[in-house]
Nucleic acid binder design. Sequence first.
DNA 1: CGGCATCCGGGAAGATACTG
DNA 2: CAGTATCTTCCCGGATGCCG
Lengths: 230, 230
Amino acid sequence: MKSEKVTDEARRRSYHDACGTAHGLELAGDRWALLVMRELMLGPRRFGDLRASLPGLSANVLTQRLAELEAAGILRRRRLPAPAGAQVYELTEWGYEGETVIQELGRWAARSPGHDPTLPLSPVSLMLSMRTMLDREAAAGLTLAIGFRHGDSLFLARLARSALPIARVDDLDGADAVFVADQPPAVAALLYGGVPAEVLEGQGALRIEGDREAALRYASLFRLPPKAGG
Amino acid sequence: MKSEKVTDEARRRSYHDACGTAHGLELAGDRWALLVMRELMLGPRRFGDLRASLPGLSANVLTQRLAELEAAGILRRRRLPAPAGAQVYELTEWGYEGETVIQELGRWAARSPGHDPTLPLSPVSLMLSMRTMLDREAAAGLTLAIGFRHGDSLFLARLARSALPIARVDDLDGADAVFVADQPPAVAALLYGGVPAEVLEGQGALRIEGDREAALRYASLFRLPPKAGG
DNA sequence: CGGCATCCGGGAAGATACTG
DNA sequence: CAGTATCTTCCCGGATGCCG
């Protein structure tokens, strides 16, 4: 019967499992879905922004993921006020709360022996990693405003009381210091790879503006978790 | 050229992304992979156990997932000592640490408007949910040993100092009280659905042995997070 | 250019049957 | 019981084209 077929089709992707984890996989377990959420974690983005940050994700799949995430109530599409008029995709409040999932998965996977931290990295991905990998003990008592410029993307990280809110901004006027790097992996090499700032600056991969001491102090606050098994 | 093709094929499943989250998806982002890990969280299981706990997962896919998780260092296969001689799958130490990922995903997804808590639930899934949904404030100062019997599966939950270690056991001798339910959803209805124990007992879905007051006290310590948006 | 539909090839998932 | 072999179905990913 056709009607039974429809039921089967509707069930096809379901795990038929009351477990919240299983439901989470139905919501965001499709390929690329969680990475689309990641790219939206620091504010609304346009279709093309998302494509640029996720090379390998084709337009049709992105369209499909956006529709599924919207249907699930994780994001909404919004039209910017004139004159921009462009359409952007924005997480709902609940969608933003998915950051803990992204963080825990990232923290756990960073311990994998197979993790290769030298691959390309999107600006948002780098900024989010700081919130995950901040050594909150080492940061206790420190108050710093650090800016980041990756091409056109500007971010401001405001460290205070061991919390590290990060926002996309239009200018970096309030920053104590600013890291300028066309390629986010350069900053990652400094924060996580132990590569000295001087080396990166010598390669032209990184520039530090403003209070250099504050910048280096900030850079010392991050640490990757130890590798598993090895 | 063929050799370039091979490279492309090797890359097919990779996200080419240094982000830990992306690597996590390569490790455990395939369909069913995280649920296989979930079923192993409370100790080694056999191939058939896993199949029984994950209806809808076919044998060939399970074989493939087990091989991939083993290659990633998340689990190992081990042969039980004679006379059992059976082969079991067991998480590595790092694999067990993936529980935080499962918890965060479950906690977040439980807030989805689309979550249906009346679906079937595996015994392990129910037991793990208690660790996620325990109201640690309400549990402060309480010390309880509560047993669970679902068919042949016996578990002992030892609440103490707001921690809730749970282990698969061979007998429930040390328990203050024991919940007996052939279908785990019956216990879920009590803990999360607000269904009174008397109703479930009247339906024959649940039996409480031992210290009834301790059992009901325990059952009052769990709460689902509020639904998002609504 | 942004967004989305359509077609195609390859490969993964799912169901069934079979083997040690 | 623990997988393997086979076949079908459908998703992913790339290319093309349409439309505002």
